[in-house]
């Protein structure tokens, strides 16, 4: 343990409004499941010393289902996601990514809101949320606003999130009609592994063509990103004759992978394209 305990503060606001007031007064930063923060604290590398335990705020909890979307509390743990039938029915990629997050003890504690707000480029649910076209509800003492998730990450650990704001809920629209879901994470091993890269693809299919397609990428850019260039190539194309080579080429413009402790830029670039090719094979197969 390299953190300096005597300098630390952890308080528990009694309500959401108190939490927001304290955030606004710079009394502390949000602390949810702690599975990211405690690792940094253990390593003695946590810069902030004052935290607010938001883990029991009811407004940030629970999963609500409407006909159009699923409304997930930011405090939903991966285990809670996995226990909900509607997630399995409508969002198979979220199931896969939640199952691929750490191992059971992490899934029991880590939250969706924390996964988003920690803003790691290698986090696993963000590429899926991007591909599902999720929206975030952000609340501050100044009010509530909703931002499309694809606009939320703006650079390495840079987010459209003010110091006095909390991510309260995540809304994910249910894909309609025939849809194809692909998610794959490539980690250092089969469990308890941070992604070297990941790719989520969701496509709606109509009349033998790609009607609406989104791709989310993990660990190949400073933040989770959508693969807009590749998407543009594929939008509206016939399943029987997808422009795979052009899409793979376009994907290069969506990535800026680096060499780091987990992998190489080259591997990331090649294998991300391999995953897209595999996803597109799955996609064309649904056309038959």
């Amino acid at each position: 343990m390299r953190g300096f305990l005597p300098a630390m503060e952890l308080q528990r606001p009694a309500s959401l409004s108190e939490a927001l007031q304290m955030l606004a007064a710079h009394t502390g930063r949000p602390f949810a499941g702690g599975t990211d923060l405690m690792v940094v604290y253990n390593a003695g590398k946590l810069r902030e010393t004052r935290f607010l335990d938001i883990a029991r705020l009811p407004e940030l909890q629970g999963i609500r289902e409407t006909p159009e979307y699923l409304d997930l509390g930011a405090l939903c743990t991966f285990t809670e996601l996995l226990a909900h039938p509607a997630i399995h029915r409508h969002f198979p990629n979220l199931v896969k990514s939640a199952k691929a997050t750490g191992a059971l003890a992490i899934q029991n504690r880590g939250t969706l809101g924390g996964n988003i707000a920690n803003a790691s480029p290698a986090a696993d649910t963000p590429p899926c949320l991007l591909a599902y076209g999720a929206e975030l509800e952000l609340v501050s003492p100044r009010g509530t606003r909703v931002v499309p998730y694809e606009l939320f990450h703006q650079g390495y650990k840079v987010m459209d999130l003010a110091a006095d704001e909390l991510v309260t809920r995540i809304r994910v629209p249910k894909p309609s009609g025939t849809s194809v879901h692909y998610f794959r994470k490539v980690g250092t091993r089969q469990a308890q592994a941070i992604a070297k890269l990941s790719l989520a693809l969701v496509a709606q299919v109509a009349d033998g063509c790609v009607a609406n397609l989104r791709i989310g990428l993990g660990a190949v850019a400073p933040a989770p990103v959508r693969a807009c260039h590749a998407e543009a190539v594929l939008q509206g194309q016939p399943l029987a004759n997808l422009p795979v080579a052009v899409a793979l080429e376009a994907l290069l413009a969506d990535m800026s992978p680096i060499d780091d402790i987990r992998s190489t830029a080259h591997y990331r670039s090649i294998v991300t394209r391999n995953l897209l090719a595999q996803a597109l094979r799955t996609l064309s197969a649904t056309g038959n």
Partner: peptide
């Protein structure tokens, strides 16, 4: 490990497995 990786510190908190190296005392209240 002290980083949530190894599970040697696992305990049951409200009936769920958690790694005790990642939990601050306050959250046990």
């Amino acid at each position: 490990c002290g980083e949530g990786e190894c599970g040697a510190c696992a305990v049951l908190l409200d009936g769920r497995v958690v790694n005790s190296c990642l939990i601050p005392a306050l959250q046990v209240e």
